[in-house]
């Protein structure tokens, strides 16, 4: 390409071009950079790049250029790691929320007669890509969350809760830590639904989840196991500790009053508790122990806490 054509293209291209000598003094720049930096060439050319662009992280920038100079190789800087190097406005000031142009920068060694004399920095506007990528990321995050959360009660759904249990179970067995499981079920929930309607039932489920959540530690993992059944994983917790928590949940829920269309709704729960024991080979064994304890609580009068039977045997002994 003729020098004339190159010059014309450099002046019209939508990419910033900045040429530095080895002392990092600006020797050339193109129109794109000129209008975006909104400075006159005569106050820029011959100045140190750090004087004209004081926002540059100086030490980092010098080291980056040192690799280009010493190794005679190009180097790169992407908006994904560094949103921008140069504080330049972008061309979509209305529709994006970022203040400065997101940039992909390329640092190229420039040789004359086999000797490196200059560094050329190309600055490309990546604001669009950055904008759409962040939108995509937040959509993906929401999707990932939706995949884990029960739509009605906003606690973990069964699938995710079981994955958590599988992890905790594996960890507790490997390091011989304690692990407890609480499963509880609303008493006579069908009756509640039949008498007051499903909207009332839904409200009770939501409130049960909220109240229970407020009683748990941050490391406890709480999920909706199915219909009106909830489950809590208690890491590093022995049977006494778990029975304490279980009783607190049962008692608090028993004394809660939920207002539905002017009426006071009261309800109770039956609770089963199990802890990890040597003969639990799979996490499902722990669930079925807790489930059996829950069934014991139901069949012996409801509104009570029962521990898994093998635990009772231990207690008796």
């Amino acid at each position: 390409m003729s020098a004339n054509v190159c010059e014309m293209i450099a002046e019209q291209i939508n990419t910033g071009i900045l040429v530095l000598d080895l002392e990092l003094t600006i020797v050339e720049w193109n129109r794109y950079l000129q209008v975006h930096a909104n400075k006159h060439s005569n106050e820029v050319l011959g100045q140190s790049v750090f004087t004209v662009f004081p926002e540059l992280p100086r030490r980092w920038f010098e080291r980056k250029l040192a690799s280009v100079i010493q190794l005679n190789t190009p180097n790169f800087c992407s908006w994904e790691q560094r949103h921008h190097l140069f504080e330049l406005p972008h061309t979509r000031p209305i529709s994006t929320d970022s203040h400065f142009m997101a940039q992909n920068c390329t640092f190229l060694p420039i040789e004359k007669q086999g000797k490196l004399t200059h560094i050329c920095i190309l600055i490309e506007d990546a604001t669009d890509v950055c904008h759409y990528q962040s939108k995509l990321n937040s959509a993906l995050e929401q999707l990932a969350k939706a995949n884990k959360i029960d739509g009605l009660t906003q606690v973990f759904n069964r699938k995710h809760w079981e994955e958590c249990l599988a992890k905790e179970f594996g960890r507790a067995r490997r390091y011989q830590h304690e692990l407890a499981l609480i499963m509880f079920d609303l008493d006579r929930f069908k009756l509640l639904n039949d008498s007051y309607g499903h909207q009332c039932g839904d409200l009770v489920l939501i409130e049960t989840a909220n109240i229970t959540k407020s009683l748990l530690r941050i490391c406890d993992q709480f999920g909706r196991y199915g219909g009106e059944e909830f489950a809590v994983i208690l890491p590093e917790t022995d049977l006494d500790g778990a029975l304490d928590v279980a009783e607190r949940i049962r008692e608090t829920l028993e004394h809660s009053v939920i207002k539905f269309q002017g009426e006071d709704i009261r309800f109770s729960t039956s609770v089963g508790v199990a802890t990890l024991s040597a003969d639990n080979q799979r996490y499902e064994d722990l669930i079925s122990s807790a489930d059996k304890a829950l069934y014991d609580a139901k069949s012996t009068g409801r509104n009570k806490v029962c521990a898994a039977r093998q635990e009772l045997k231990l207690l008796v002994n």
């Binding site: 980092w60 690799s67 180097n75 994904e80 790691q81």
Partner: peptide
């Protein structure tokens, strides 16, 4: 001065080029 990701990318580029 730079994240671990950026360190890895920077080194990669240097080794490759």
């Amino acid at each position: 001065e730079l994240s671990v990701e950026e360190q890895i990318i920077d080194l990669s580029s240097i080794l490759t080029t």
